[in-house]
Structure formats: C-alpha cells, structure tokens
Amino acid sequence: MTQPLNILVTGASRGIGAAIAAALAGHKVVGHSTKGEDGLVAADLAEPGAAQGLWETALERLGGRIDVVINNAGIFEAAPIDLDAAAWAAQWDRTMQVNLHAAADLCRLAVLHFKAQGGGRIVNVASRAGYRGDSPDHWHYAASKAGMVAMTKTIARAYAGEGIYAFTICPGFTVTGMVDDYISSRGGAAFLADIPLGRPASAEEVGETARWLAVDAPPSSTGAVIDVNGASFVR
C-alpha cells in the first residue's frame, strides 16, 4: 500500500460519501456532513462561506496537511418550472451553492494548499446528468453538475505541471440500501431497461472509483471523467 494520505471527504455521513470513506481505510480521512454527527466536521454548505470553516477544521484535524479533497456533498431537489419566479430562483441558488459554489471554494483552497506543499489531488463527484441532462424538474441539478465537470477539467489543465491532479466521477443511479426496493420505487423493469448492465451502480462501486482516483490513478489521467452508470449513458 502507498503511504497513508490525509484526505477530506464531503458529504460523508451516508450513501456514496460513506462508501468513499470506507474504501479509503488505511488513510487518514476527515469526513464532513451538515450536522457533524459521528465525529464528522459540521458545515452547512448551503451557507456561502461555509467551505472556509470546513477547510480550516479539516486542516487542523489532519495536522496541517491535506493531500486529497473529494467533493461528494450535493443535493437533488426539484424546481418545477411552474413555481413562482422567486421560489424557482431560490432553488437554483441553493442547488448551485451546495453542488458547485461550495465545491469550487474547496477546490480553490485545495489548489492554494497544494501549490505550497508540492502537489495533491482533487476528486469531484458529479453526475451523468452533467452530460445527458436530467428530468424537467432538475435543470438546475444538471447545470450544477456540468459546471463541476468543466471546473475540474480547468483545474487539471491549469495545474498539472505543479503536481496537482483533478478528476471527475459521473455516477448514474446509485443504490445504497436494498436493491429490489430501490428498483421498485423507480418503476421496476422500465427503470432497468435504461441500464444495459441490468442494475444500478452500488455505492461501493463509486467508492472504489473515488479511492483509485485519489490514490492510484496515474498522473497522466488527470482531467479524466470516469462514468459509473452501467452504460446508461456513454460518450
């Protein structure tokens, strides 16, 4: 195994984030959640500026050095077009703040830190929606994830020469609990017909992808986008 790394994972209380933290066993991981349960760092990323406090606390817990940042925290909340204008705009602002602006703030802090220490890695968890779009009620979600993809590619191109590498994961539907119950809730056979693999991805599969990018992926793969969606969307 490589030398243990100091890693910050956002949105680590459940689902994909918890699976990422578990996959990184053997490394020193500081996780984040909105409420800070179970020893996680508390930060409400819907609040502008919250990323700064999260970064400072994580940096302190990790002894002044962070090697990898994994931006997994995100929300998926509907914004139907028949909402009144103020409510529609507010939902766009909230989604962009959590899914993109907070991740951008952490990426900025990470890049500045990595430049000073001679390198580091960023792994951003986006979505296939960033490429193929999403439902009529989720324009804003798809836009936030497309922005995350573009931001990550920009970071990769800008800082590779300084040993700073950036990657994106684009999951499709992901199961974190009972598979049969999840499939039934999504429409059963009709839902599965859109996934050539025949099942949604597991959180553990996404977690392992994040682990590989954070720890083992070769530097030449910086800027890569890894799809984890059972070929439900291919590029």
Rank of each mutant, 00 (worst) to 15 (best):
Q3G: 01
P4T: 03
I7Y: 05
L8I: 13
T10H: 01
T10K: 02
G17N: 07
G17H: 10
G17D: 06
I20F: 04
L24S: 08
H27T: 01
K28Y: 01
V29L: 11
H32L: 10
T34L: 14
L40M: 04
L40C: 05
A42I: 11
E47M: 10
A50R: 10
A51V: 05
Q52E: 14
W55E: 03
E56S: 14
E56W: 03
T57Q: 15
T57Y: 07
T57W: 04
L59Q: 12
L59H: 09
L59W: 04
E60G: 14
E60K: 13
R61Y: 09
G64V: 05
R65M: 10
D67A: 11
D67P: 02
V69Q: 12
I70F: 06
N71L: 12
E77G: 01
A78G: 12
I81S: 14
I81G: 03
W92S: 06
D93M: 04
D93Q: 15
L100G: 00
L100S: 04
H101G: 02
A102N: 00
A103T: 12
L106N: 08
R108Y: 10
L109F: 04
A110N: 00
V111L: 13
L112A: 14
G119F: 04
I122V: 09
I122G: 00
I122P: 02
V125E: 07
A126P: 03
A126V: 01
S127V: 02
A129T: 06
G130S: 08
R132N: 12
W139P: 00
W139Y: 07
A142L: 09
K145D: 00
A146W: 00
M148S: 02
V149S: 03
M151V: 04
T152N: 06
K153P: 02
Y159N: 10
G161K: 08
I164M: 07
Y165Q: 13
F167N: 06
I169P: 01
I169F: 07
T174A: 10
V175L: 03
M178K: 15
V179L: 15
D180M: 00
A193E: 14
G198A: 02
S202M: 05
A203S: 15
E204P: 01
T209F: 11
W212I: 15
W212N: 12
L213N: 11
L213W: 08
A214N: 08
A214L: 09
D216V: 04
P218V: 07
S221D: 07
T222A: 12
V225I: 14
I226Q: 10
I226F: 06
N229Q: 13
A231V: 06
V234S: 14
